[in-house]
């Protein structure tokens, strides 16, 4: 089972490190990562494996949102099915 984590906001130091260690602690394995920087606007998209997560997916999504608030970024974790449904036939 996979999910997509998106991190957006104003670029600052150590975002990738913070987010990936947070995810690792919760049993999430990062499979792919891409990032873009548009002027000061930072957007990172991670494809992650959530087969071994320790909580329910909706709870993990909430925790990600909270981490985002703490570090001043917007962090979303969503089941990959929503993107597959909307963008693949």
């Amino acid at each position: 089972m996979r999910a997509v984590v998106t991190v957006t906001g104003k670029d600052k130091k150590g975002i990738i490190a913070k987010v990936s260690s947070f995810l690792a602690e919760r049993g999430v394995n990062v499979e792919d990562i891409s990032q873009t920087l548009l002027q000061e606007y930072f957007a990172m998209i991670m494809l992650v494996d959530i087969s071994d997560i320790k909580t329910e997916l909706s709870v993990l999504a909430k925790e990600c949102e909270k981490l985002g608030e703490e570090i001043g970024m917007s962090i979303r974790l969503q089941h990959e099915a929503i993107f597959n449904a909307m963008h693949n036939i």
Partner: peptide
Amino acid sequence: MFNQFDVLETID
């Protein structure tokens, strides 16, 4: 597979 643009479009 979806791409980066697709992901950001959904979120927008």
